[in-house]
């Protein structure tokens, strides 16, 4: 390496120069369209910016924390926050349990055609939530829908799911579980396949039943995977938007309006400052919950 006698520094300088050439296009786009707007949004949330200020975004007045106060005092926003919590608290565990069950089923039981099942369960994940929501509106239709027809076979008269204050939200959660469990399943499956066979065998020798082996041997080893999937699923669910936008418009009686959807509505009303403050509240909640999940689930 040293026989050319070339000094080391110029090569490093060339590396630095090359690095910046390679970074530059990204840096420009990232600053303009991500980092800039993140800060801009924070700034905007402390102003009274409205739609009429669109062309003169710097000629607005600072209002301190007024938007944040307004948001917290707004009954619909509080309702939206409650709905979002409902969606996440019920939706994330259901999604993860379904995903884990499917992963165990495929890992332990389904050896032949495994990839067929894997691909099948994953299919909804790649499809547009908007299209899924449109389809599910028909699947959940009161009289001519698929779900109530199937329930009718066993003598149950299904409600008008999306028009019911009680059932609209559970319907959206069921749809979210149906659409998203495949994603966590793939990760659980990779996690399960990374656990050596000897772990199970050791448990068998010690006389542990299959549920005990799963609960006390396999599940603890999946901890990092559970952490990852709960964080990513949680971040996604906290932002749910398309589902109520397409299926219920937030109704009936705001029973399915989400923080994201209400933020979007405020933007639509022209209340830019208020909308950004709501978005920032959501952002802070996401950051805090993610942090807590890391603390609770990280390896001890």
């Amino acid at each position: 390496m040293t026989d050319t006698g070339r000094p080391r520094r110029p090569r490093l300088d060339q590396q630095t120069a090359t690095a910046w050439i390679l970074v530059l296009p990204f840096a420009v786009l990232f600053l303009a369209f991500t980092a800039g707007p993140v800060l801009g949004s924070l700034g905007m949330s402390f102003t009274d910016m409205r739609q009429r200020d669109l062309r003169t975004p710097f000629a607005v007045n600072g209002v301190g924390f007024e938007n944040y106060l307004k948001a917290f005092q707004d009954e619909t926003f509080r309702k939206a926050a409650f709905n979002t919590a409902y969606f996440v608290v019920l939706g994330v565990p259901l999604t993860l349990v379904t995903a884990l069950a499917a992963a165990v089923l495929l890992d332990r039981g389904v050896k032949r055609f495994q990839s067929l099942f894997k691909v099948g369960y994953y299919l909804p994940v790649v499809t547009s939530i908007v299209a899924i929501a449109v389809i599910w509106r028909f699947v959940l239709a009161p009289d001519s829908g698929l779900v109530n027809t199937v329930l009718g076979w066993v003598g149950i008269e299904g409600p008008n799911w999306l028009a019911s204050e009680t059932w609209a939200m559970p319907s959206l959660i069921a749809m979210a579980v149906w659409r998203n469990f495949g994603s966590a399943m793939i990760i659980f499956l990779a996690g399960l396949q990374g656990i050596p066979q000897t772990v199970e065998e050791a448990g068998q020798i010690d006389g542990a039943g299959s549920w005990q082996r799963f609960r006390y041997l396999i599940l603890p080893l999946l901890r990092p995977t559970v952490l990852f999937t709960s964080v990513t699923t949680g971040i996604g669910y906290l932002q749910f938007f398309e589902e109520p936008f397409v299926m219920t418009q937030g109704g009936p009686l705001n029973s399915t309006i989400s923080v994201s959807m209400y933020t979007y509505n405020q933007f639509g009303f022209g209340n830019y400052g208020l909308a950004t403050s709501m978005a920032y509240i959501l952002f802070v909640v996401i950051a805090v919950i993610t942090f807590i999940q890391f603390r609770l689930l990280r390896e001890k």
Partner: peptide, 28 residues
């Protein structure tokens, strides 16, 4: 490649991974 600010840049980019689209869309 070795260059100054490499780790800071990486951390900065990763920090934006979990920023909701809702946060940026109004200023954007």
């Amino acid at each position: 490649l070795r260059f100054k600010g490499r780790n800071a840049l990486f951390v900065l980019v990763m920090a934006t991974l979990m920023i909701p689209g809702m946060v940026t869309f109004v200023p954007l």
